[in-house]
Design a protein around this nucleic acid. Structure first.
Length: 531
DNA sequence: GGGATTGCTTC
DNA sequence: ATCGGAT
DNA sequence: ATCCGATGAAGCAATCCC
């Protein structure tokens, strides 16, 4: 790489195809201070190009993560070929197939003062006077590159800011965030104090973006960035902004409805190939509903509405990332629409609330569209831990037809398994249930369809018994046997009311919770009511 | 190789 | 996820 | 207000096992 010659620059380009300037080395004008430019270059990989006017050309480095804005932070910089001076003003689209194809935008420009320039020694000290960058910086060639052989090898440098950050109040971006939580509740009585959003049935995801690159964490701070390649380009859309967003990763079914079930084929993937095919078959969308950090400012202390305003202006919606709407005041209308469309529910957020990490204290509420109906109790699983000797969960079922219909069609009623419920009872109720069910215990399963079958494997067997068996030192085989004894059946006489969100594809209840025994309805009248 | 089981994560 | 109970 | 430990369904990955 020889300075003052643009041969490398020209060799790499076809000036019939690219809008980039052809240029030639120029003699220094009367200009006092040399100029510099930082261009944001969305090419194969997002990066920034730093160029310094010197000796009739632009000395150039590609900086993958952009200009460091605070001291002590090293950013990698790859020395690239000198560019012509005209490139100081270049902005535009480099067409596909050309060298450096992609969008080039001027991120900052200005003048700089040269304090030291020793390219041979791998050392450049400058003081930038730009719009975004001002201060002293140093570029140092790394030892690794120095020892490298061959002139064609790219030189690796480090770019570092020497002066304190321009903004003394600048805060570091948080590395992890525990998402704020919502309390299950009804619509607030003072709706004018609240904003309402759709509750999206996906997975909670905090998105960090820095230097055009994103990182996505689940609510438990698990890194799932690589599981959603279709979101990678969101980083480019955010450019050099440093941001932390809170939102939801959502998949949509054929009908265009958000569907957790659909999303599930995207969860827990590790194989690169599988991720690729699944992301193509079932792409997800990132719905950003909050912003927690922006360009050196922790905005979690701003009230909800102000955060929403920042968020709305941060990027343009695409099919892959969007800012879903919020509605101030009218929660009932939104809830009505949500129910009508079969969505999961509504979030209510206090207009004046700040973002409180991991807090479920009530500034956010979730109002869920719950289903509830009666089910026949057909048995139970034995409990564990403090439930030992009592009930773990109740086996639930419903009849496929009413007694009248069964009579007309001369088909006997069939009991259909509907999953089990293991929460919602007080200790007292648990005791009552245990007694009532024990009194009705039978050997054979009363279930006709989807019945838990101890002799064939199935997920219904997935009860905590295996854990208990293990803690007793039993081998897995014995544990498997052991758990067969942990299901008890009962005459299908008791009727209980259960709240749930929906039936799964397999016909069992999602998020079931027990609401109480009902004795005002004969068991044989219990049918599925949701469809 | 493939089915069953277990582990872990999401909700 | 939901829930009850303990802290 | 928060935490803890019971419990639910479902999917993928790793391992077990024949």
């Amino acid at each position: 790489m020889s300075p003052r010659s643009l041969s490398t620059y020209k060799d790499k380009r076809d000036f019939g195809a690219t809008p980039e300037p052809a240029g030639a080395p120029k003699r220094r004008g009367r200009r006092k201070d040399p100029r510099f430019v930082v261009q944001e270059h969305s090419a194969t990989a997002m990066h920034w190009d730093l160029r310094l006017e010197h000796d009739g050309v632009l000395l150039s480095w590609a900086v993958p993560k952009g200009m460091p804005m605070e001291p002590k932070l090293n950013r990698m910089a790859i020395r690239t070929e000198d560019h012509p001076l005209e490139y100081l003003d270049f902005e535009g689209e480099i067409p596909k197939g050309s060298y450096g194809a992609g969008t080039m935008r001027i991120w900052d420009h200005g003048t700089y003062e040269l304090e030291e320039l020793a390219l041979e020694d791998g050392k450049v000290h400058v003081r930038f006077e730009g719009e975004r960058v001002h201060g002293r910086y140093v570029l140092v060639r790394t030892k690794a590159a120095k020892g490298g052989t061959g002139s064609g090898q790219k030189e690796q440098w480090l770019l570092r800011r020497l002066d304190p950050a321009d903004d003394p109040d600048r805060e570091p971006m948080p590395e992890h965030v525990k998402p704020m939580l919502a309390k299950l509740a009804d619509l607030p009585d003072d709706p004018e104090e609240w904003a309402f959003e759709v509750k999206w049935d996906g997975i909670r995801a905090v998105l960090f973006s820095e230097g055009g690159r994103i990182r996505i964490e689940t609510r438990n701070q698990n890194d799932v960035t690589h599981m959603y390649p279709e979101l990678t380009r969101f980083g480019r859309a955010l450019g050099s902004h440093e941001v932390v967003l809170d939102g939801e990763i959502v998949a949509f079914d054929e009908a265009g409805k958000p569907s957790f079930q659909t999303l599930q084929s995207r969860l827990g993937l590790t194989s690169e190939a599988t991720i690729k095919t699944r992301s193509a078959a079932t792409p997800v969308r990132y719905l950003a509903f909050d912003i927690l950090f922006l360009d050196g400012r922790d905005v979690r202390d701003l009230p909800y509405l102000e955060r929403r305003a920042l968020l709305r202006d941060l990027f343009e919606d695409t099919p892959f990332w969007q800012v879903p709407n919020h509605h101030v005041g009218d929660g009932e209308a939104l809830l009505g629409a949500v129910v009508e469309q079969g969505l999961e529910g509504v979030m209510a957020k206090r207009l004046d609330s700040t973002y409180k990490e991991a807090s479920r204290a009530g500034a956010w509420r979730k109002i869920k569209r719950q289903q509830r109906q009666e089910f026949v109790i057909c048995g139970w699983t034995e409990g564990d831990g403090r439930r030992a000797g009592s009930i773990g969960a109740l086996l639930l079922a419903y009849y496929d037809s009413t007694p009248a219909k069964a009579k007309r069609s001369k088909q006997p009623q069939k009991l259909i398994y509907a999953g089990s419920v293991g929460t919602g009872f007080t200790d007292a109720l648990l005791a009552t249930l245990h007694e009532e069910l024990t009194r009705r215990e039978v050997k054979e399963s009363p279930l006709d369809v989807g019945a838990p079958d101890p002799d064939s494997p199935g997920k219904w067997q997935n009860i905590r018994a295996r854990d208990r068996a293990k803690s007793k030192g039993l081998d897995p085989k014995t544990a498997a046997k052991a758990k067969r004894g942990l299901i008890h059946y009962a005459k299908p006489e008791l009727v209980g009311e259960v709240e749930y969100t929906e039936f799964t594809r397999d016909g069992t209840l999602r998020h079931p919770s027990f609401k109480g025994l009902r004795d005002d309805k004969p068991a044989t009248d219990v049918i599925r009511e949701d469809a």
